[in-house]
């Protein structure tokens, strides 16, 4: 296994692992803010996967100058750029709604929030 393949695949494993950990946290945790934290972890992992999908080892960043001959794919990076900012706005919404629900039900525990039962 060359260093290049190790570099490439270790990034993929990290990203996928982060998504799975985030999903696990969303499924099993009870505190609403802890769920929001797990959600942002999964969000970060998804962003990592998207950027990784356009990554080719040994190439340089997509900013043209005289020394650059080959570049990585700029399209996933452009998608992730907006996705991060949207992600933080959504997280803010999540936290605010969570705080409102916790104040209504008197506890941050999602099992006590009757409005969220499904």
């Amino acid at each position: 296994m060359t260093a290049e393949t190790m570099f490439y695949w270790s990034l993929a494993v990290t990203a996928l692992g982060l998504v799975l950990i985030g999903i696990w946290g969303v499924l099993t945790k009870k505190n609403i803010l802890r769920i929001a934290l797990a959600f942002t972890l999964a969000d970060t992992g998804v962003n990592l996967i998207l950027v990784w999908s356009g990554f080719l080892p040994g190439r340089s960043a997509p900013i043209v100058d005289s020394s650059v001959t080959s570049m990585v794919d700029p399209l996933p990076q452009a998608l992730v750029l907006t996705s991060i900012v949207i992600g933080v706005a959504v997280a803010a919404l999540f936290v605010v709604v969570g705080v409102l629900a916790a104040r209504k039900s008197g506890s941050a525990d999602v099992r006590r929030m009757k409005e969220l039962r499904w």
Partner: peptide
């Protein structure tokens, strides 16, 4: 940054 995405790194 290691994945050659400085724009995304700066935003994150």
């Amino acid at each position: 940054l290691l994945m050659d995405a400085p724009d995304v790194a700066i935003t994150e």
